[in-house]
């Protein structure tokens, strides 16, 4: 087994065992999807209009919940030093961690979204579009979030600062993602799929390099 897969599977195992990051994110997502109709009222026509956007925002926030520990836990217990000295480059390590985070958070959130969309009375085509958009877009959330996680890994209150620096960067993902649902609902082609895929791809390819730099700067501290 390669070092890359070793780190990937370890992070996946940790996410299941410790803190249960995946389960917490799913619970948070489900709560957001419950609270919004409770706040807005049970008008399904209104909720269907908002559903795509609300579920996208909820999924992005839920994915961010566990991101602050992405590097921090390994930094605090000394594992990050050992990872940095391993044959795996820091870029490779960052990529493995992003992939593990997506598999343990982004993917389950995507799979839960069709069930939660019932609360919002989304039409069949809108549900498919939402699920597709989350499948395409959540890697960007993990990837851009990893940049924030690498920059804040040594901060005791990193969990508070991380959303503040990451969410503005995720504006395009939320807009394009919700745009895909809108396309399915209105039938008007708007090109959201292409933009979202491009954003997600670029973020996934570039962010390991930036995150590695963030880790480097913090280890040097």
């Amino acid at each position: 087994m390669t070092p890359f897969l070793a780190l990937l599977t370890r992070d996946l195992r940790l996410s299941v065992r410790e803190g249960g990051g995946a389960v917490l994110a799913l619970g948070f997502f489900a709560l957001v999807a419950t609270l919004v109709p409770l706040g807005v009222g049970p008008d399904l026509n209104l909720l269907a209009k908002m559903g795509g956007g609300i579920l996208w925002v909820g999924a992005a926030l839920a994915a961010l919940l566990s991101l602050d520990r992405l590097f921090q836990a390994d930094y605090e217990d000394g594992s990050l030093d050992l990872i940095a000295l391993s044959p795996l480059s820091l870029e490779g390590a960052a990529f493995a961690k992003i992939a593990a985070h997506w598999l343990s958070t982004g993917l389950p959130l995507t799979l839960l979204s069709p069930i939660l969309s019932v609360f919002f009375g989304l039409s069949g085509s809108a549900v498919i579009a939402l699920t597709m958009s989350l499948a395409i877009g959540t890697p960007a959330v993990s990837a851009v979030g990893a940049i924030g996680a690498s920059l804040t890994l040594s901060l005791r209150r990193g969990g508070l600062i991380l959303p503040l620096i990451v969410l503005p960067l995720l504006v395009p993902a939320v807009m394009f993602g919700a745009g895909m649902v809108l396309e399915a609902q209105t039938g008007l082609t708007n090109g959201a799929v292409g933009f979202l895929a491009a954003f997600s791809l670029a973020a996934s390819l570039l962010s390991p390099f930036v995150a590695a730099q963030g880790v480097r700067l913090n280890l040097a501290g």
Partner: peptide, 13 residues
Amino acid sequence: FLYLGYIALWNAI
């Protein structure tokens, strides 16, 4: 918000 995040990060380190 980009400015705010930057300032918050500065102040935290």
